[in-house]
Computed example of a mutant assay.
Amino acid sequence: MLKLGVLDQSHINEGHNATNALSNTLQLAQAADELGYSRFWMSEHHASPSLAHSSPEIMISHVASQTKRIRVGSGGIMLPHYSAYKVAENFRLLEALYPNRIDLGVGRAPGGMPLATRALQEGKFPSMHSADRYPQQIVDLIGYLNDATPSDHRFAGLIAEPSISTTPELWLLGSSGGTAELAAMTGASYAFAQFFGTAGGEEAVAHYKENFQPSVMASAPKSLAAITVSCAETEEEAEYHMRSNDLYFLMLRENRPMPYLPSAKTAAEYPYTSTEKAHIEDTRRFRVVGTPDQVREKLLRFAADYQTDELLIVSAIHDNEARIRSYRLLAEAFQLGQH
């Protein structure tokens, strides 16, 4: 049976503020917990006025304390900004607080504008660009999380406290074959960010599975893909709610980012050019929109194409009640709470 999880970005909705956005995140997490979703991940963004997640590790602790069963994690920590040792400490502490419920998803993207990246990395890595250190950071992180740094490591014998008997699941997040190759080489799990609208995901996941090398993290490959979904009782309503996502990402593409997630009404009234309409139509092939039966069929086909048994659902819907209802309808279509 296909497992479904949630990826939340805490969009600040038009007419609301960051406090509202974080409250919406918690409400969604609690609903996902009750509905039978497998995991709930939160993103990391910096200097992004429309997004409220800048420190997912803080939100993980908050959400995990207010839910009962669901795995809670980062989607993801932008590792080049940080010390792999400190990230290992943070997530070992979270795992100690919530055993067998913590996921550590990491990525190499900046998660924000260049100015924010310079501030986050001020005084660090003077001899090389931080991205060049990412593969070594992953190797270091695996060692710290598993008390498995080699004897010739530059910090041999260093333990990331607290030393515990369980380990957070490590996922490498990416939208390219490069991350798939690194995940396979290090024996980590791999998550493909399909919701970015990037082609080549099927090939990246296949490469990961074919080249996976067992490690202290896992003996077999584990993958998932994240995809944008809008589900409603009618196709017309699902289409209406997806308009917020359409306009928001269109403005990002045109380098005119919006300071909020627009309402469906705002998006419907926007004066699109023919070129913009064509772009939205093109990106819709990466989205799943429709009734529960329609969405279920599309997601099953999508999972088969990706050779995966788990998907993360991303729903940038302005109306939080409609967003939760979208996840509820999807859970019912897949009978998530009945397994």
Rank of each mutant, 00 (worst) to 15 (best):
P110R: 07
G73W: 02
E310I: 03
H129W: 01
A193T: 07
S55I: 01
L299R: 06
R253M: 05
V216E: 03
E237A: 12
R325N: 15
V139F: 01
Y240V: 06
L311M: 05
T117S: 14
E34F: 06
M59Y: 06
V216A: 14
A206Q: 15
S130H: 13
L28A: 08
H62N: 02
A88F: 00
Q66I: 01
Y134G: 06
L224H: 12
L28N: 09
R323E: 11
A32N: 04
Y98M: 01
P126M: 13
G197P: 05
E236R: 04
G105K: 02
S274T: 15
R92M: 07
S165I: 01
P56Q: 11
T266N: 05
E332I: 06
P110Y: 04
G197H: 05
P135W: 13
N13R: 11
P150L: 02
T149C: 09
H207T: 14
D8Y: 00
H45R: 11
M251K: 15
G107T: 01
S50H: 10
E14M: 11
Y85Q: 08
S48M: 13
V72Y: 01
S43Q: 06
A84I: 10
M185T: 12
Y270I: 06
G187E: 13
N211S: 14
S127Q: 14
P56V: 13
F195Y: 13
E122V: 01
F212L: 09
A183S: 08
L299P: 10
G123M: 03
D319C: 14
L120A: 13
Y240G: 07
R256T: 13
H62R: 10
M42Y: 06
T291Y: 05
E210Y: 05
F196Y: 11
L172H: 10
A264V: 12
M42Q: 09
L158T: 15
R256H: 09
L252A: 08
A225I: 13
S223H: 10
R301F: 00
L336S: 11
I142E: 04
F249W: 12
A220E: 15
P49F: 06
L247V: 05
S244M: 05
Q27C: 04
L170H: 04
D293Y: 00
P257N: 05
N245P: 00
E237Y: 04
N255G: 06
G197Q: 09
L311E: 09
D152N: 08
M258C: 02
Q294F: 01
P168I: 09
T179K: 00
R323Y: 07
H16R: 13
H153M: 05
E297G: 02
N13L: 03
E254G: 03
H279G: 09
M1R: 07
A218P: 00
F40P: 03
E44M: 07
G337H: 15
A160E: 07
A64K: 01
H62G: 02
Q136A: 11
A331W: 04
A226R: 05
M42F: 10
E181I: 03
Y327E: 02
K209S: 00
S61W: 00
A29T: 09
P80M: 08
Q294D: 02
R154V: 04
A267M: 10
M59E: 10
R118C: 05
L22D: 12
S50Q: 14
N320C: 01
K222H: 11
G157W: 00
R296C: 03
L250R: 09
